[in-house]
Computed example of a mutant assay.
Amino acid sequence: MTKFIQFHLLTAYAPANLNRDDTGRPKTAIMGGIERLRVSSQSLKRAWRISEKFGEALSGNIGVRTRRLGRDIYQKLLDKGVTEKSALATAAKIAEQFGKLKNDKGAKGDLVNLDIEQLVHISPDEQQQIDQLLALLAEQGGREPQDDELKLLRAQAGGVDIALFGRMLASAPGFNVEAACQVAHAIGVSAVTIEEDFFTAVDDLNRKEEDAGSAHMGEQGFASALFYSYICISRDLLLKNLNGDEELVKRTLRALAETVVTVSPTGKQNSFATRAYASYVLAEIGEQQPRSLAVAFFNPVRSDNQVAEATQRLEEQYKKFDRAYGVCAERRYVMNVESGEGSLSELLDFICQ
């Protein structure tokens, strides 16, 4: 049976614009017939993946997400003394192993046509294989790679970020990796009203001889919410994606858990200082079928003490599921900042037992 690790978090944010839509306003969703503030799972995962905390904990095991692999290869070959013509041909051959190239005939310059049509996540193992091949080709006069050498690039995608969040390439399905970690969109537990901040900027060198007005005017949306977040990890799949490296699995789980409770989305960070730690974390481990506790908030929280009521609703909801379906987790750990229950270090130890 598959072992699952589930996290349920409550995190409070003061007025902010954590994750914008196409108009620049904070993203929202209708839940229970009421508009709520929302942060997309893509925004959350990117904030965690590129955070300093995650990077330091898993240094050397994190890949890079890019369309510009071909350009990088091209420049490395030039730096090794390979001619421009050979570098272009080799860069194209290697990059197209990871996806279809743009081949934009109207583009200015050859480098654009080295770009892969869609973002591709390159693992550290794959990058190492590429670098070794480039060194060999440069030593041998800049010759083009052979088919059997290109096949060697198809290494196990052992990067922890790929193992957690997966990789999907429609043009190269052989490189697909099923995500071991599923992340729900964070959703506000109460109704939301988006407000507009009107602002001006003053020219520091304007001495008001002619014009005392501002040099720039603008507006941006903002809102505040207590968010419910849900994360589910298949520990077995994570172990498989990391090639059976149990020690790396434990490091990955610790790094991810610490990151999700302490790292915030980066949208409009300089304007709002949107830094927050989770106020409540419920971690569950077991082989039972996973389930979100979002139903606890289909009726919006309207209390003067939203953190306390939302916490109570979460704990009541998992008990309701336990009564109806049987115990839904073998072990649980609670960190409740407001009541003083639990600690981050104990939480990290719990999920790695």
Rank of each mutant, 00 (worst) to 15 (best):
D147Q: 15
S345V: 00
L282W: 05
L10K: 06
S214N: 05
F165A: 15
T2P: 15
E309H: 09
E309W: 13
L37D: 06
N61V: 02
A179G: 04
M335Y: 11
A138M: 10
L164H: 05
F165L: 15
R71K: 14
Q306W: 03
D110W: 04
V281F: 02
Q6R: 14
N206T: 01
L114N: 04
N336R: 11
G267F: 03
E144F: 02
G63Q: 08
T311H: 05
S86N: 15
G63R: 06
K240E: 13
D104Q: 08
R25P: 00
D104M: 09
E149P: 04
E117T: 11
G60Q: 06
D147L: 14
E341S: 08
V334G: 05
Q182R: 03
L169D: 10
K208N: 04
G159L: 14
A283R: 04
F297L: 07
V295H: 12
G326S: 05
Q128R: 06
L69Q: 02
I122P: 00
S214A: 15
A135I: 01
S224R: 11
E149K: 07
K240G: 01
P300D: 13
N336A: 10
A135W: 05
V249E: 05
T200G: 02
A180S: 15
S229T: 08
G218M: 02
T259P: 07
Y318W: 13
P26A: 09
R154W: 08
N299T: 07
Q146Y: 04
I62Y: 03
A294K: 13
D110Y: 10
V189G: 01
E284H: 07
L18Y: 02
Q289R: 13
K3I: 01
L137T: 04
Q312D: 11
N113Y: 05
F98L: 07
L10I: 02
G218E: 05
V337G: 01
K53I: 00
L37Y: 15
Y13W: 11
G342H: 06
P26Q: 11
T11S: 12
V337A: 05
